[in-house]
């Protein structure tokens, strides 16, 4: 496990459009760090730069204080799990996993032990002599993981490794990867655009947009207290409230709320749908809203209310039966109000 330090990485492709605009990032030893962002934000490019597969235009990368920026990919000890797994179809499972070990000179019994150990870790020891094309998507994904684990990398790089799997398998693999990373105490950088994946697995998350890491923190902190409107919306649903922020207070059609000094100039306010409750009439701080729409999602139900011109989404688990067009009372704790910079992240 290595400590990774990235400073000022910039990269533009031939079109001249900058993909990375000076990325700084520290990954702690043994940490599972997630880069989360929409398509085209530069997260995969950053990963490939770390692997040495793409050359940056500027900036530095060091592992445990050693600059590795000038090293070719094969000398970096940064094993990658590719999005499409990149398993070699002309080799069987064993040979795929053994490849990296062989290039570093491991032979004979030691090679076999290490390969089988990696395969046991991903629960594929019985599949060692199978041909790769004969494996299912989930099995291929685990072979790719075993191949990366076998070489005991200084840094494990995962490029959207679960994006080709179905929902059930994806859930199962999330905990599998988490388990293995903890067991091996691996430093890992995981790239995804799936917020559920990031929130459920990460030690820390960096939210990327427009070639920069916009916010960074542990999952709870980022979800509950995002600083920007982009981050709040990318990590989950959020109601952006019409109103003006003045003297640290938010003035809305349904009341004035203290923002406890969180608000700066140009801020907008937001609140997560699950933080708004449907309450009995007359409760202090509550306000009236007309129910317009219902979207049932199994374990939760999203209600759309209207308060004047403002629409508010409310998420309830164990929802009651309600009548569309009727007036209800809503309330929330002002502490859950988010003061968000109104930038889209650019």
């Amino acid at each position: 496990m290595a400590e990774v330090r990235i400073r000022g990485i910039v990269k533009s492709y031939t079109s001249g459009v900058p993909v990375l605009k000076g990325v700084d990032l520290d990954i702690r030893p043994g940490e599972l760090f997630f880069l989360l962002g929409p398509s085209g934000c530069g997260k995969s490019t950053l990963l490939r730069i770390l692997a040495g597969l793409v050359k940056p235009d500027g900036g530095s990368i060091s592992f445990d204080g050693t600059d590795i920026g000038s090293l070719p990919p094969e000398k970096r000890h940064a094993a990658m799990v590719f999005q499409n797994y990149a398993l070699w179809p002309h080799m069987d499972v064993f040979e795929n996993v053994a490849f990296g070990l062989k290039t570093s000179g491991v032979r004979g019994r030691e090679l076999k032990e290490k390969v089988m150990e990696a395969l046991e870790l991903v629960r594929l020891a019985d599949f060692a002599r199978r041909r790769v094309p004969a494996l299912s998507g989930g099995q291929q994904q685990r072979v790719a993981l075993a191949r990366a684990l076998a070489v005991q990398p200084a840094l494990l790089l995962l490029d959207e490794p679960l994006s080709n799997l179905d929902a059930r398998l994806r859930d199962a693999m999330r905990s599998e990867i988490r388990r293995i990373c903890s067991l091996r105490n691996l430093t890992a950088l995981y790239v995804t655009h799936d917020r559920q994946e990031a929130l459920s697995m990460a030690d820390r998350i960096g939210v990327m947009h427009g070639g920069l890491i916009r916010e960074m923190g542990d999952p709870e902190e980022l979800y509950n207290f995002p600083r920007s409107r982009f981050c709040a919306q990318f990590l989950g649903d959020v109601n952006i409230i019409d109103g003006s922020v003045r003297d640290g207070s938010l003035m809305t059609p349904f009341g004035t709320f203290k923002l406890n000094g969180k608000a700066g100039p140009g801020c907008v306010a937001g609140i997560r749908p699950e933080r708004i409750r449907i309450v009995e009439p007359g409760r202090p701080g509550s306000f009236e809203a007309v129910l317009e729409e219902r979207v049932f999602s199994g374990d939760t139900c999203d209600w759309t209310f209207r308060v004047g011109e403002q629409r508010l989404f409310v998420r309830e688990s164990a929802p009651e039966s309600r009548r569309i067009g009727a007036t209800y009372h809503l309330a929330f704790e002002p502490d859950f109000l988010l003061a968000l910079t109104d930038a889209d992240g650019e």
């Binding site: 692997a51 597969l53 070719p72 094969e74 940064a78 990658m80 398993l87 070699w88 990296g100």
Partner: peptide, 17 residues
Amino acid sequence: PEELENAARNFGAGPLR
């Protein structure tokens, strides 16, 4: 897919290998 060759480099193989 070029990714197969990238993967080999990523796992320590030099260009000739």
